[in-house]
Amino acid sequence: MSNNLLEIRDLHKSYGDVEVLKGVNCTMTQGDVISVIGSSGSGKTTMLRCINMLEEFQGGTISIDGQEIGYEMVGGQRRRKSEKEIARQRALTGMAFQQFNLFPHMTAARNIMLGLMKVKKLSKEEARSIAEKWLDRVGLRSRADNFPGQLSGGQQQRVAIARAIAMNPKLMLFDEVTSALDPELVNEVLQVIKTLAQDGMSMLLVTHEMRFAYEVSNRVIFMNQGRIGEEGNPREMFHKPKSERLAEFLKTSSFG
């Protein structure tokens, strides 16, 4: 047992013949805020999706809080854990998606309450009060009884983040959460994430917002062609990139 919150060892993932992750290693401790950057197709989103088993992976291990995610060794054979166990492990992490993925037939509050009631088995009243607390935190208390279709993209994403966080995950995963938003709505979402970071939430963010990655994270990972190309603290990474790849990437990105 290590006291790492997240430990990824030699992660391999292929889609058919195409290997998208070619041995990724990464560790993260409680309270870390890590931004994952890199060009599209570099495997950053795939890595994030492996962590909560939205993608299967063929090699390597991922552990959260010492628990191996998704697979176990039984008699020398690597086996997928039961669906029920995987569902339980998914609740260790919370995830916010690029497309928000709120449930359109439920109000903002109900979106948050669903997991609390069905996974955490809380009563309706408890779930409602937690939902309201988190809606308040993301500045949407007054929108509790609105449906997603009645909210702007930025508001929907804030509800989606509240829905994930309300489950009290050990680690939050953010998958390009501002990419689908109109420019003027990006900031309200980043602001919410920033407050969560200040509260000590452990977070792994895949992002194209370089300025934000620079400001909010204590470590940055640059993914390149299915491997970690470079990692370090944001100041070194952004100002003194070691690899040519990263230097090139930063030049074409919005940083600066």
């Binding site: 909560n52 088993m53 939205l54 669906e83 029920k84 569902a87 339980r88 998914r90 609740a91 992490t93 919370g94 995830m95 998606f97 993925n101 709120l102 449930f103 669903l114 997991g115 069905k118 996974v119 989606a160 829905r163 994930a164 489950m167």
Partner: peptide, 10 residues
């Protein structure tokens, strides 16, 4: 995916 991510079973 969102349902899975909050830990719901199928």
């Amino acid at each position: 995916e969102a349902a899975k991510a909050i830990g719901l079973t199928f």
